[in-house]
Write a protein that binds this DNA or RNA. Structure first.
Lengths: 188, 188
DNA sequence: CAAATAATGTACCGATCGGTATACTATCGC
DNA sequence: GCGATAGTATACCGATCGGTACATTATTTG
C-alpha cells in the first residue's frame, strides 16, 4: 500500500473511532508510518484530507443510491432499492459509515459539518426527486417531499446505527419492514 | 447570573454550536467574561464541566421519562407519554438537545461519549423495563425488549433532530403518528 | 473583629495543535 | 546524462491546548 492510501486508511479508522476534531495530524502520520510533510503533500490540509475521504466514499454511495432511486411507478419497491443501496454500502464500509453517522448529527458550525454538508444535500436531493416523481401519481404526497425525504433518511440512518452496534441486522426482512413501516406512516 | 451559571450557559451554547472537542476552555471563559481558574474552581476540568452540564439536564429528563414510562397495560398510550416527555424536554431545552443528539452518534472512544454513555444507558434501561412489563401481556414481544428500545429511542431522536432543523413539529399529531407507526412495525 | 474559606485574577506550564521552510532523494521524460 | 517533478524527512513556526502555582479579594463563620 502506498503512502497516500495508508494515510487515508488510518485517518478513516481514527476519525471513525474518536472523531475528526479529537484526532491530530501527528497521530495520523505516526499511524501511517510517515511524516507530516507527506500528508500535506497529498492533501494540503487536515480539512483537505477529510474532503478526500468523503469524496472517495460519497461518490460511489451517491452513484449507487441514484440508480436505486430511479422511480418506476412502484414506490415501496423503489424505497426498498434505496434502503438496500444504503445498507449495502454501510455493511461493506463500516468505518466510513460510522464516521458519516457521527457527521450526520455533528453541529452545523463545526468544520466537519461544513465538509459533509454538500454530500448530504446531494443525496437528499436524489431522494427528494424520487418523491417528487412519486407525488405525480399519489396526489396526497404533494408538497411533502422534503419531510418525507428527511424522515426516510433518518429512518435509514437509525437502522444502520443500530446495526453498527449489533442491535439488528441489515437484511432483507428489515428492509421490507422498514419500508412497510414508512409507507404506513405516510398513508395513515 | 452568577459566574457558575454563566459558565454553564455559555459552554452549553458553544458545545451545541460547534461540538465539545472544537471548543476550547479559553473560549468558554472569554464568553462568560471570567478567567480560567474560576472555571477550574467550579468544575475541576473541561470534562467535569461537561459532566455537570449533562447531569443538570439528564436528571430532570430522566425523571420525566421515568414517570411517563410507568406501564399501565396500554402500550401505545405509554409510548405516547414517553415520546411526549422527550419532545417536551427537547422543545424547552433546544441547545441541550442539539448537544445530546450530537453526542448520541459520537464515536464511542471519544471523551464526550464516555461522559454521556451512563446517562444513555440509564434512560435506555427505563424504556427497556417498560417493554419488559408490556411483554408480560404481549407474549410475542418477549426477548425483543432491547431492539425495541433502541428502535423506539432512535425514532424519537430522529424526529427531534428533524424538528430542531425545522423539518417537522413536535406536536400531538406527530406523537400519535410516530407511536402508531412504531406499533405497526412491531405487530406486522 | 479574626480566622477560615470561597471566589477570582495574573502569569505561567509543558504538550499539542495545524502547518511549513528547506533540503535531499527518487523517478521520469527527453 | 540531465532537467524537472514528485515524494519524503529534519527541524522548526506561532498559536492554542488543558491545566495550575500563587497571590489577592470577598464572604462567611466563630
Amino acid at each position: 500500500m502506498d503512502n497516500r492510501a495508508a494515510i487515508l486508511a488510518h485517518a478513516l479508522r481514527l476519525f471513525a473511532a474518536r472523531g475528526y476534531d479529537a484526532v491530530g495530524v501527528q497521530e495520523i502520520v505516526e499511524a501511517a508510518g510517515i511524516t507530516k510533510p507527506t500528508l500535506y503533500h497529498y492533501f494540503g490540509s487536515k480539512r483537505g484530507l477529510l474532503d478526500t475521504l468523503l469524496e472517495g466514499h460519497f461518490t460511489p454511495l451517491h452513484q449507487s443510491v441514484k440508480q436505486a432511486a430511479a422511480y418506476n411507478g412502484d414506490l415501496p419497491f423503489t424505497l426498498e432499492k434505496v434502503a438496500r443501496a444504503y445498507f449495502d454500502y454501510a455493511k461493506t464500509h463500516r468505518a466510513f459509515y460510522r464516521m458519516q453517522l457521527a457527521l450526520w448529527y455533528t453541529p452545523q458550525q463545526s468544520e466537519a459539518y461544513q465538509a459533509v454538508a454538500p454530500w448530504n444535500e446531494k443525496l437528499h436531493q436524489v431522494i427528494e426527486e424520487m418523491f417528487t416523481h412519486a407525488a405525480e401519481q399519489h396526489g396526497n404526497m404533494r408538497n411533502r417531499q422534503r419531510p418525507y425525504t428527511a424522515t426516510f433518511l433518518g429512518m435509514v440512518n437509525t437502522y444502520i446505527g443500530l446495526a453498527l452496534n449489533d442491535y439488528t441486522e441489515l437484511d432483507d426482512p428489515l428492509i421490507y419492514q422498514a419500508v412497510h413501516q414508512f409507507m404506513h406512516g405516510i398513508f395513515s
